[in-house]
Design a binder for these strands. Structure first.
Lengths: 136, 136
DNA sequence: AATCTTCTTTAGAATAATTATAAACAACGA
DNA sequence: TCGTTGTTTATAATTATTCTAAAGAAGATT
């Protein structure tokens, strides 16, 4: 069980005051067993459903952005009309079921080490992400 | 030198009549030595510059979509406000220079084989793409 | 607790990419 | 050439995201 204190800590770490709205957002994002893949719209709707309180879209966008910058959320590189996020911020990869528009985590171990045998002068590698598209 | 005949063939294969506008689009897309990474907006502007003729945005979108479906172009999975495409339709991967918003090809050999040790019942793998984000 | 300052929320407007529409036009086959 | 069908285009519509500014809430100070 994730406690309200942890949410408040996460918020403070992200330079955000712990408000009712933001705690509701945390409740939906972080009070879970499994990793959570979502779009802003998913999140927006789930907040209403789970907490019974409405949080404005702008607040949802702002809070997600702050968590992203702080590293409490990850953006998933994928081409879609909407941006997908992930509560799993460890190194890992994804299946994307194109037909059902659904993401599935792939553990790092299930992909094995990826050695990039090419480098760009003056640049260093920030992340390596594998996207595996699925079809029927 | 890529010939107009090849463009016409590509268009016919994509169930598109070879019109002046579409041939201009092909000229910009396929008359090149190296791979070409672009957004619709890039392409739209280059057509004006290179051919001196304007093609409407709608036509650019429609033609790119048809080539995508036919496999003459690839969409690059990346999170950006705009969608990126690639004229290199062979299996390969990408660097993305986050700061400069620029894509660089990585040959398949420079990444090595990627073995996905996980499978989803009823689904098969359509593609495996690696995105390497670069920072300074 | 009262007050002040600063941050936050919110609805709605603004922006930007993409898709849809429907009228004028061009390619193709007879 | 003519008729059919596909195409182009400007513009409107849609959708995700960002911006704005006014009202409200949190935190610090007394």
């Amino acid at each position: 069980m994730t406690s309200k204190q942890e949410f408040i800590e996460k918020l403070r770490n992200s330079s955000l005051r712990p408000t009712k709205q933001r705690i509701n957002i945390c409740e939906v994002l972080f009070n879970r067993d499994k990793t959570f893949h979502f779009t802003i719209n998913d999140l927006f709707n789930l907040i209403k459903d789970k907490t019974g309180e409405k949080v404005s879209l702008a607040t949802v966008y702002n809070t997600v952005d702050a968590f992203l910058k702080k590293g409490y959320l990850k953006e998933i590189p994928i081409n879609s009309n909407q941006t997908y996020f992930d509560t799993n911020v460890t190194d890992h990869h994804h299946f994307f079921d194109v037909k059902e528009e659904k993401l599935i985590d792939i553990k790092n171990e299930d992909v094995g080490p990826i050695e990039i045998q090419k480098s760009i002068p003056g640049k260093k590698i920030k992340s390596v992400e594998v996207l595996v598209k699925l079809e029927d």
